[in-house]
Every structure is written in C-alpha cells, then in structure tokens.
Design a protein around this nucleic acid. Structure first.
Lengths: 223, 223
DNA sequence: TACCGGATATAACATATGTTAATCGGAATT
DNA sequence: AATTCCGATTAACATATGTTATATCCGGTA
C-alpha cells in the first residue's frame, strides 16, 4: 500500500462513535445510508418477522464492515444491534465508491471483504438448512473461534460469547429451550465447557466431525 | 449512461457460451476465476456437505451475475449448475475492477447487484431459520415470481419452475418426502395448481399471509 | 442480608419433520 | 405394445424440535 492509501484508510476511521450494548444502530426500513467499520466489540445483523420473531443473519467482529453495499435507492433491509459496547467508525458510503475509483489496492480489499461476507452468509444458510441442532451450535462456535483467530483476538480454546442463549436460538433457527438442551448435551459429552460469556472448545476435532465444519473455507480469508 | 459505457457493457457480453441442463459450470474448490452473466436460463448455486447432501443457496435468473466478487487468493466456495439450457456471458473479473475504476455509473449498478444478492441470500436464511415447511415453499415461490416479474419474464399467475422436487427440498432444507407432502397440501387447499415444470399461484394474498413474504423487499430492486 | 428480575435449566407433552419402503405415473426406448 | 427408468406420491413409523410450565441460579440493588 502507498502512503496515500494508508492515509485514506486512516482518514475513514476519524469519525468514531460509541454504541451501548443492546442499541440498534441500523434499523430495517431506515433511509439513513451509512457504512460502519466495526473497530471494537461485536454486532449482529438481523431481520424481524411480522409476528416479532427474529432471525439473526450474521455476527460482525472487529474489523468487519457493515453496510458496504448501500443501495442508494432503497432502505436498509436488515437491522444491526450492538452485542456489547461498540466502537464504530462512521463512513459516508460515497467514500467507498471513491475507493473503487482511486485506490485499486484498497478496492480489491473491499472486494475481498464482500466475498468473505458472502461465504459467511452462505455457511449460515448451510447450518440452517442442513445441520441438526447440536451440529448448528458446534458449527457456529467453530466459525466464530476461527474468525477470532484470524483477527488475533482468540484466547486458546476459549471463545468469547457475549450473547444470551436466546440470541443463539435466533441465530440458529431454534427455540430457546432446544438451544439450551443442546448446549447441555455438548457440555455433558465433554465437548465444551460453559462459563459466563465464554465457552471453551474442549475437543476441536470432535466438534468439527459433529458439525461438518470446514476450517479451510475461512482460512482462505486469512490475512 | 454514456455511449462509451453502453459499448463497454455490450463488450462484456461478446464471449458467450451455452451450457446444458445439469452441467456444473462452477465447482467448489475450483481455482478458475471467472465471472458469468446469465443471459438466458436458470442456474442454482449450492454447496455440498461431506456426506453428499446438498444445500442450494440461491437461484440465478436471466440478468443475474455469478461470481461478481471473486477473491483472487481463494477457491470458489460454492458450485453452480444449470437447471435448464443456459446462455452465459463469460467475463474476466478484472474487467469488473475496471468498471469500478472507469465507469462510476456502471459501478453503482454493480453495487446494486451486490446489495440485491445479499438481500436474496438473507431472505433465504430467514426462510430456512424461521419458517415452517409449507411457508418456506410459498415464500420461495413468491420470491421467484416477483423476480421474474422484475425482468418481465412473468406470465400472469404462472411461475416457471424448471426443477425437480428434490431441488426444492435441497433449497428449503427439507426432505424430499416432506417437500412433496407440503406441495400436496398447498394444492389441496387451492393455493397453487401444479403442472409440468410450472405452478400457478392461485391466491397471492393467501400465500403472502402464509409465508410472511414482504413484496416490498424485492420491489426496492426494481429497475 | 433479603429481595427482585432476568437468564438458565429441566420436565412433560404436542407437533413437525425425517426415514424407509412401497406404489404409481408418464415419457422415452426397445 | 412391452419395458425401463425416473420422478412423484402415499403410508407407517421414528425422531427431532417446539411449546408450555415450573424451578433454579445469579447478579444487582434496596
């Protein structure tokens, strides 16, 4: 990267804002068009059904970009909420277009981010469509664990999990009760240990076998 | 659009190829990096689990772009197959980067395509995660029907459906038998009529209510 | 310390969906 | 016309998951 590119990238992150846990900083139907870079904390992207039920589509971890592909003619088609205290860089999406025009290196970085988001959302569809409940949990844990590893926020076999079981349920398309049952099963069979806001993945290989997780798919997106 | 832009767009479609039904023209793990514009026919994007089961992620209809976000460092993370005879324009993805640099109007069109693909894949996740089987079917039918309408390939209440029930099952995360049961139920309750490779949506409002489908979400992507 | 409220856990039961197997139908082929 | 094959259909049964209700745990707060 040239100095100019580095300067531009840093300039994007000038305007930061803090968001408290539980606050929706993007709301489905919003006209406001903003791109966010997640500097610190975890966020979730979700949609709401007409009867109030939720489906969480994906989690955003530090370094992830939210709202990369603003459609200027449309409203936000999902909501985003802070799972813990966030630090967000607020970016005018027009600057994203500017990147594509002026900074080819950065542009290919954006393209990389998009490909990655697609892969993650595709994996989510596979979890929801083809895995039984326990495997869905294991698969999600492995995905988050590997993503944290890629941004060097991992901590051995421990996985930070700043979310309630009801959030896991809304992610995995399960009921709260069944989510709880399955976590208990995983615990009883020694595959995970549960602590407050954290779990420990005791046997990665067994979890991988159980969930048909493919570590290679995310590894392609290492830096 | 300027003449130059129109010329460039047409130039992209110079190199076309025909693909027979059932042929995989992108295979998961491939190193080959190509972008396709679907000129004619239907395609499906899918991944395969280690035990051979499939999850179809999305359908591509005429006008859709496949492989817009090639990650030059990675392999294809899904496969794509022709549902009927296809006509594909084969595009070097470097020309996509070129669009972003030189043709801002076209670039915003690409961004629009990406936002649309995200919305469609997000809707697929909602179907899989939060809708019961019959509603999943209705929701998918409505999505395809609306998408066909947007490209003026609709035909009244009739919906072309160039796929087997096992393809629907692999799309909706259901077993073949249950898919068949639910189609029968929809038929018996008069919501749809089934014919060879087509169904007729007899009562759009009832289908919308059944599946919590939101016509607005796709309408945002009308042309 | 006692209380409160949210989150987690467990149980009993209801329902949706999966599995296996058998049958049926129609289009292509002999 | 008979055969074959593939997809659609149906039935009987097994299993996973949802629902409702209640109990327990735990951190915050009066």
């Amino acid at each position: 990267m040239s100095e100019e590119e580095i300067d531009f990238l840093e300039g994007l992150q000038n305007n930061t804002v803090e968001v408290q846990a539980g606050v929706d900083f993007v709301v489905e139907g919003d006209d406001r068009k903003t791109t966010f870079i997640l500097i610190d904390g975890w966020a979730s992207r979700y949609t709401t059904l007409s009867d109030g039920r939720r489906q969480i589509l994906s989690f955003a971890l530090p370094g992830d970009i939210l709202g990369l592909h603003i459609n200027f003619n449309a409203q936000a088609h999902y909501s985003a909420t802070a799972m813990n205290t966030l630090k967000l860089a607020v970016v005018d999406p027009r600057r994203i277009l500017e990147i594509n025009q002026k900074f080819p290196i950065l542009a290919s970085g954006l393209s990389w981010c998009t490909a990655r988001e697609f892969a993650i959302l595709g994996d989510q569809a596979v979890r929801l469509g083809r895995l039984p409940a326990k495997a869905r949990l294991a698969h999600l844990f492995l995905e988050l664990w590997h993503r944290l590893e890629l941004i060097r926020e991992n901590n051995g076999k421990w996985l930070a999990l700043p979310m309630k079981q009801s959030d896991l349920a809304d992610t995995l398309g399960l009921s709260l009760v069944h989510t709880n049952r399955c976590i208990g099963d995983l615990r009883k069979s020694g595959l995970i240990t549960v602590a407050k806001d954290h779990i420990k993945l005791e046997d990665l290989d067994a979890l991988i076998r159980l969930s048909d997780f493919d570590p290679e798919r995310l590894a392609e997106f290492s830096i």
